[in-house]
Simulated scan of single mutants.
Amino acid sequence: MIDARLQKIYERSYGSLKNSLEPKVEKTGNYAANINDWAKALQPYNKDLAGRIDEKREVGFANVERLGLPRYKHRTILLTEFLKNRGEYFREMESEKFFVSLEPLNHGLGRIGKAGLNRKEVIELIFAFIAPENQDQYKVLLNQFFDNIFGGTIVVDKNGNPFFEFIRGNQTGVGKGNVDIEFRVWRDNFTKNFKYSFEDEIIREIAHMAIMSVPHSGEGREMIFLTGYYELVIARKDKSSRPQVFFLDYRDNVKFTIEDLEKVELS
């Protein structure tokens, strides 16, 4: 019963919107469908919503920084500059692996990206997909990357109630809405206590840490979280370090919020 009602909520969320549009989406570049592709597919059905969804990836990155949320170290560099001084930029990240996103400067060219690459693989990705004569048409979003323990999304409704879905491993599948969710956390409508779809106490502690990393005010039943859509991962910088939360994206547009959770009984 709980799973069915949770699914009812999830069907109102961003992931479900993307699922419903998936047959209509054209892939661009070396990504599975991204947020801008979903906007394009939605245009014939709801131009207003499509316009609000169609934001550049940098918007989410900038929002994370604006809120002071913990995130991967990163740099944005023109591709030609990166290739000239790649050793310097790699060292600046202070990680052995990287997430790289190759963003076109102009419309019409595909976006290319992949996570978990070493230095050699980053360069191979660039030369595999971007011809030398087109290198001046791209910029590089270079990010630290640490192997993900968990990845997921948190949607906070307009009343400040969080709904957290996550899986083991990378966050990508949750954001695309094409994986089965392993873990869910929400707040009880009456007590405002957190409720869990799983029993593991260690994972509950990690999930609670992630939710409490979202900006919030008040205490106990009066605690209110900042409305919006968050993408995040939980990772260790090395084998001896404790798990940490890293936010990948934050959007505060209305299309990322879900209907008030208190309208759906979860108990």
Results as ranks from 00 to 15, higher is better:
Leu125Asn: 13
Phe163Met: 01
Leu125Val: 12
Phe129Ile: 08
Ile154Phe: 06
Ile149Asn: 11
Asn178Arg: 07
Phe127Lys: 15
Trp186His: 02
Trp186Pro: 00
Gln137Glu: 09
Ala131Arg: 15
Asp147Pro: 10
Glu124Gly: 15
Gln135Arg: 10
Asn193Tyr: 09
Ile181Ala: 06
Val185His: 01
Asn134Lys: 14
Gly160Phe: 04
Ala128Asp: 15
Tyr138His: 09
Phe183Asp: 00
Trp186Arg: 01
Gly169Asp: 01
Lys120Gly: 15
Val185Trp: 01
Asp136Lys: 09
Ile130Ala: 08
Gly169Phe: 08
Ile154Ala: 03
Asn193Met: 10
Leu142Gly: 07
Lys120Phe: 13
Asn178Cys: 10
Phe166Thr: 03
Glu121Tyr: 13
Gly177Val: 02
Phe145Trp: 12
Arg187Asn: 09
Arg119Gly: 09
Gly169Leu: 03
Lys192Asp: 08
Leu141Trp: 14
Arg184Ala: 02
Val155Arg: 06
Gly151Trp: 07
Pro162Arg: 01
Ile149Arg: 13
Ile154Gln: 02
Val156His: 04
Gly169Thr: 09
Ile167Gly: 07
Arg184Lys: 14
Asn118Lys: 13
Lys120Leu: 13
Phe163Cys: 00
Asn143Gln: 14
Val156Ser: 05
Gly175Cys: 06
Asn189Pro: 11
Tyr196Trp: 08
Gly175Met: 05
Lys120Tyr: 15
Pro162Val: 00
Phe129Asp: 11
Ala128Met: 09
Thr191Lys: 07
Gly173Ser: 11
Leu142Tyr: 05
Asn134His: 13
Phe194Asn: 01
Thr191Cys: 05
Arg168Cys: 10
Val122Glu: 04
Thr153Val: 11
Phe163Ser: 00
Phe194Gln: 03
Arg187Met: 07
Phe150Leu: 02
Ile181Gln: 09
Gln137Trp: 08
Lys120Ile: 14
Asp147His: 08
Lys139Thr: 13
Val156Gly: 04
Glu124Tyr: 14
Gly177Asp: 01
Val156Ala: 02
Asp147Lys: 06
Glu165Tyr: 07
Phe194His: 03
Asn161Asp: 14
Ala128Ser: 15
Phe183Ala: 00
Arg168Phe: 09
Asn159Ile: 08
Asp157Tyr: 11
Ile123Cys: 14
Ala131Gln: 14
Tyr196Pro: 00
Ile154Lys: 01
Ile149Gly: 11
Thr172Gly: 10
Phe163His: 05
Glu165Pro: 10
Gln171Met: 12
Ile130Cys: 06
Ile154Val: 12
Phe150Lys: 00
Lys192Ser: 09
Asn161Ile: 10
Ala128Gln: 15
Asn193Gly: 06
Phe190Gly: 05
Gln135Gly: 12
Lys158Gln: 13
Asp136Asn: 14
Glu182Thr: 07
Asn178Glu: 12
Gln135Phe: 07
Tyr196Ser: 01
Phe145Ala: 10
Gly177Phe: 00
Tyr138Ala: 05
Val179Met: 06
Asn170Pro: 11
Asn159Glu: 15
Thr172His: 12
Asn118Glu: 08
Ile123Trp: 04
Lys158Ala: 08
